[in-house]
């Protein structure tokens, strides 16, 4: 959702738009291209890798995500609704064989976040999770 600076002063639940990223978003084909830059065009299967994030972001500027990719050498994280699709690329050393890491990312709007893992044998696995970034709502 695009909110102008003025219109972010909305009702209960009217949080400001995600300030850290500015505006604009990438196209669907751009996501495919960006993923291909990581996978080299290899087939991506599901399973073996997990990505967790809250159902609803408390703040789109700082959304906690956790990846667990046992046996992965690297994991790239993409935010399909962000102006810049690639968010981070993790490389795991021998001391982190479970491929477990958490960080906090910016999400410009409600969208899917995708983690693609390059496994030790050179194959690719992916997991995705849907995160809602809301501006409205008022509880109780």
């Amino acid at each position: 959702m695009r909110l102008t600076r003025r219109s972010t002063l909305v009702l209960c639940g009217g949080a400001a738009a995600v300030a850290g990223l500015g505006f604009g978003s990438a196209s669907a084909s751009a996501l495919a291209d960006e993923i291909e830059r990581f996978t080299g065009g290899a087939t991506v299967a599901t399973g073996l890798v997990s990505l967790t994030a809250p159902e609803i972001a408390e703040n789109g500027n700082t959304v906690p995500i956790r990846i667990a990719a046992p046996g992965a050498s690297a994991v790239a994280v993409f935010a399909e609704g962000n102006p810049l699709l690639r968010v981070a690329t993790f490389r795991f050393g021998a001391l982190n064989p479970a491929g477990v890491a958490s960080t906090r990312i910016r999400l410009a709007k409600t969208q899917n976040v995708i983690a693609i893992a390059e496994m030790a044998d050179g194959t690719f696995r992916q997991a995705s999770t849907f995160v809602k970034v809301t501006v409205g709502g008022c509880g109780g």
Binding site: N61, A88, R91, G93, T103, R104, R106
Partner: peptide, 16 residues
């Protein structure tokens, strides 16, 4: 020995 290395983009939150 490497534990983890992260290539970070602008999509990482402030105060990483």
């Amino acid at each position: 020995q490497l534990v983890i290395e992260v290539a970070m983009e602008p999509g990482i939150s402030s105060n990483p």
